[in-house]
Simulated scan of single mutants.
Amino acid sequence: MQFRNIYMTGLVLIGCITLFLLYVQLFYSPLLYITGDTVVRRADWERVSHMYGNMMTRQEEFLKQRSLEDVVLHYAKQQQIIVNDEAVKAQMNQLGSNKTERIKQLKSLGMTEEESYQNIYRAMTGFQVKQQLTKHITVSEQEIQSVYQQNIEAFSVPELRTIKYIHIKNLQNKHELDRYFLSIESFKDAYEIVQHPSIQKGLQELVSIAQLQGELSKPIATYMFQAPENQLIGPIQDIEGQIWFYVEAVQKPQILPLPTVKAKIHSTILLEKQTAFFQKWLKTQKKVQHYKIFPGNLKRHQLISFWFDLPHHVMLLL
């Protein structure tokens, strides 16, 4: 009798373990992150991950982005920062003037209207939170002048030229075109009239020598930047044929004055200060909300994830 009881107990135990393993295999969804009162599991993430991109190598990055969004949304909920429904719909209407157009546009993006609404709502809420948190941040005249002086080279503009050219490549009987290269006027006629597969015509407007070297060979670009203005130059021989050109305009090198770039410097400094403040605030909020993220559970087997998650489940119950 005692053996039978032990045998039956063993069978029950094996059955329970089997059922437990089956449950974990079929139904358990591993934890991915916890913040505030938000608990997100792998199944939750799989429903929304396509909105962040399908690159499997960046799934951890996208997951972290989503989790930090939820940190901000949790704070917004606590502070009763609410985005107006009409404002969200106004943004959605930019995808199309009617529902049919929006659905068509969203289909090409692999999203539904509801998903688009939630995406826009999350983005607008995050923007409102950031605006509220950083509204006290200002930029002084001294900061603007300091950045301008310390980065003066960044505001220098090199010599820029507008150059029109004709490149004759491997064309037989080139002498037939000689009449077009007697003057700038005849060159202009050729530029407008002559059409041939072996003739490449180009107009580079207010380009630097570095930009021109990206279009033509370095020796040719250098030659064009040494040539006088409004003078027909050519033929210049290169490995593909001959080039004729003239310089239409020259803009001398200059350093942009502070008043010209002041607004840009102001916006750059302001953005940097706001971003730094927001990142510091976000770090604090993660502690306040007991933020935890488990990117390893994206790939772990459910059974391993279950035991890994167990302490966190216990903490959630306390």
Rank of each mutant, 00 (worst) to 15 (best):
R122T: 10
T284L: 14
V129G: 02
L11Q: 05
F187P: 04
R42C: 06
P158Q: 05
K273C: 09
N5C: 07
A221T: 05
Q79R: 15
T35W: 01
S156D: 09
K280Q: 15
K287G: 12
F181N: 13
S186P: 06
I269Q: 03
E248M: 07
I233Y: 00
Q118V: 01
L160C: 02
P311H: 04
P158M: 01
R41I: 08
R47P: 00
R58T: 11
A263E: 04
Y165W: 10
V139S: 03
S108M: 11
V261W: 07
L212F: 07
Q94L: 03
S108H: 08
G96P: 05
Q145V: 04
I81A: 02
P235V: 00
Q94F: 03
I193D: 14
I243P: 00
V71A: 06
A154C: 04
L318H: 11
S29T: 13
I17Q: 13
E192M: 09
M315R: 12
S186W: 06
D189G: 07
G296N: 15
A90S: 14
H313S: 07
R47G: 04
V12A: 14
I137L: 09
E61N: 03
K252R: 08
Y117K: 05
I14A: 15
M1S: 14
P228F: 12
T35K: 02
R66Q: 08
P158H: 05
N54F: 00
Y28F: 15
Q289V: 01
S29D: 03
G36P: 09
K299Y: 14
Y291P: 02
Q105T: 11
Y148S: 05
T9E: 13
T112D: 02
K130L: 10
N297E: 07
F27N: 09
N98I: 08
P235Y: 00
